[in-house]
Nucleic acid binder design. Structure first.
Lengths: 404, 404
DNA sequence: CCATATAGTTCAGAACACATACTAATTCCC
DNA sequence: GGGAATTAGTATGTGTTCTGAACTATATGG
């Protein structure tokens, strides 16, 4: 048994125990659960003494606040309620092909401020786009400041493959970006953010937004599929994003669903994107007015569907059929039995759902029950919420970073 | 941000640090690396004092032995070489449709004893099969005893979905088993094994065998595809098996590769198994002698291929084509760029490889380079080696279990 | 008003890694 | 051949952290 890498590669120090327990205690404090020190001791298995000491340190970080004595009418001394402090938050931002979005999410999960600006970013220079984004962000940061919300960090989601560690976009085909270095722009978005601003993939961030602020309440494991100009995705497994060896997992848009099908921009053939991407659906629906924006044509498609247009219906049903194939393949491979659809799939939910269900039933009866096929309700704020949530999670996982 | 489960759910105690460091030190000791305490201190970042103390405890477990002073001609006091003790091993076993296999693997990764017995287990009673397996196992256990190899634990691999915690087979379609409880039989295989005998899926175990004893030397992340009567698989990501939420990940046999294709035994349609399973390949090759065993017909197929039979060639090429589709879909979803093929695919490697490569190139050029398409060389011992290796890894991950 | 129950704090004790100083064993070089 | 230099491994005191038991604080119930 060579290279039985059974354990981590870093030595455990005694201090690591405290770091783990700080995060553990913090994980038992919610936005409004009013958990007391005694509750936490019971829930975690730590002694009251340890919890007291850990909570004292968490109060210092500013992530947690005391709500005062909870009089619940029970016998005995009442405990002091603890909750995450809503005066801490993070910035979330998204660059997409046809809009920019920025917002602030606090530790209670509330979207406190946000701005969405229509834009036509396809082929536009990265520096140019980032300038516009920075202006939007500055307004949000100032609004947070005046409202007394301290920003701990932030996230920026883009529709492409990214290297979060370096702050670079390897490739964003629909924006026309290759090897774009956004690290300095990211650093400038929030002054003195202890957890920095991190780059992420748009579909991955939207998948996480769904976990934290959407259907995640009832789902711990699912495939998220984001329909935009391209088709992206994210795998959420055990309430965590499964990133894969290189961080590019979840690329469901290039799963092969029609072996004899059309060539794809990725160089392959029969990818899901070639039959369920915006352009493919619009073309199949016969909505081919190249002059208007993609967003406008999507609205036209919805209007046609509302009017019962047969060609539009069959185009969407076709997309649902192929979506089902991709979901089944993903379900078998990664052991998933739930799917959440976002982006344009959410907007087309009413019409796409029956075809998707029938496809699922045909290709893998019983694998994905109908009540585990969900549609996102987060709209254009999904990715920014996920990006902000990621920053909040970094803070909650490493609260000791906020101590002297 | 509700339920931000940022950390583990168990409290960290001071003693956990030692457990982690025991495993960390052990992870730096190989079969014959002759690592010294000083080497380990340098590699792990622990101090020499800590390493000395940890090594002393590991020597007590019997997993590690001192090889004596290493005279390397360098200046300074020579160190004492440390290595995993080959006198510790584990039992591995496999029940498959047409054979039983049992063996003992020691901590150096050497297969010390093994027996493979042909059998026709399809539809045979579980108790009956386990009786025969136990007899084979008893011989191996005795051989280990007389050779001075102490068995720490074991593993049994079966072609089906299993619940390792309970020791039950939920379903093994090709054996005809449903809800079979093997826990008592497992417990009886090795007397007083400190790490027990654990049930596993055959393809998953074979995937791990490949990691530890096969192509894993050069691959940390890959999809393993096992061609048997059914088509199974396993995902190895970051040098670990990715089991998925319920433990059923890697079921590549039921990825949809031919949407308009045949019905599958799983109830679906167009699954990989319907075009690349043994029966499918044999039927397409025109080798339809229902009287002889599947194994005999596979030999006939190889003979036909060797003779250049056109129908046999096109049958295998077809399987390779569809294998490529499944590999591409898996690669996109889970971010993989390597594949290892085992079972009958390994036996057909010479003929299947060109079709697979051309399929990969057609559906996702550049995703899986030709030098990352490998074929297993472990034959019928793959699953038993993986099952034994799993037991060894449990011991290496929790050496403190062997201390008083 | 006192018994009882629950919340939270204080303090001694044990476990552990670390830093430093030590002993042990080898090679280098005059 | 013998001392200097070098490297391996051990011994000891210190700081951190959890635990458990005793203690204080604050409520309800009769």
């Amino acid at each position: 048994m060579r290279e039985h890498g059974a354990a981590s590669t870093t030595p455990g120090r005694v201090g690591d125990v405290r770091r783990q327990n700080l995060a553990l205690v913090l994980g038992n404090i919610g936005p409004d659960t009013r958990a007391t020190r005694a509750d936490i001791a019971a829930a975690t298995g730590l002694t009251k003494a340890s919890v007291s000491s850990l909570v004292a340190e968490l109060l210092e970080t500013g992530l947690v606040e005391e709500l005062g004595v909870t009089r619940d009418g029970e016998r005995g001394r009442p405990g002091v309620g603890l909750a995450l402090d809503a005066r801490r938050g993070a910035l979330g931002a998204e660059i997409n092909v046809d809009y920019l979005a920025v917002g602030v999410v606090d530790l209670h999960g509330t979207l406190r401020f946000h701005e969405v600006a229509d834009a036509e970013n396809r082929g536009r220079d990265a520096e140019d786009v980032l300038g516009e984004l920075s202006a939007l962000a500055r307004r949000c940061v100032e609004a947070a400041q005046t409202a007394g919300v301290t920003l701990l960090g932030g996230g920026l989601a883009v529709p492409g493959l990214v290297n979060p560690a370096r702050g670079t976009v390897l490739t964003a085909p629909n924006l026309g970006w290759r090897d774009a270095d956004l690290s300095t722009a990211l650093g400038g978005l929030i002054p003195d953010a202890p957890f920095g601003v991190v780059l992420s993939n748009e579909a991955n961030s939207a998948a996480l937004a769904e976990l934290w602020y959407g259907h995640g309440a009832s789902l711990r494991d699912y495939l998220f599929i984001s329909g935009e100009v391209g088709v992206g995705g994210g795998l959420v497994i055990g309430s965590e994003l499964f990133a894969g060896p290189q961080g590019y997992a979840g690329e469901v848009g290039h799963v092969v669903v029609e072996p004899g099908g059309r060539r794809c921009s990725c160089g392959g053939r029969g990818c899901l994107e070639t039959v369920a991407g915006q352009e493919a659906i619009l073309a199949a629906a016969g909505i081919t007015d190249g002059g208007s924006t993609t967003a406008a044509r999507m609205s036209a498609l919805q209007a046609a569907l509302g009017a019962g247009d047969a060609q539009a219906m069959s185009a969407v049903e076709r997309a649902g059929h192929y979506l089902g194939i991709a979901v089944v393949s993903a379900g078998r491979l990664v052991d998933l039995s739930a799917v959440v659809l976002g982006g344009h799939f959410a907007a087309l939910g009413t019409w796409i759902r029956p075809a998707l269900l029938s496809s699922l039933d045909g290709f893998a009866p019983g694998l994905v029950p109908a009540d585990r096929v969900a549609f996102s309700e987060l709209g254009t704020t999904a990715a920014l919420r996920g990006a902000a949530g990621g920053a909040l999670l970094r803070a909650l996982a490493a609260p000791y970073e906020l101590l002297p």
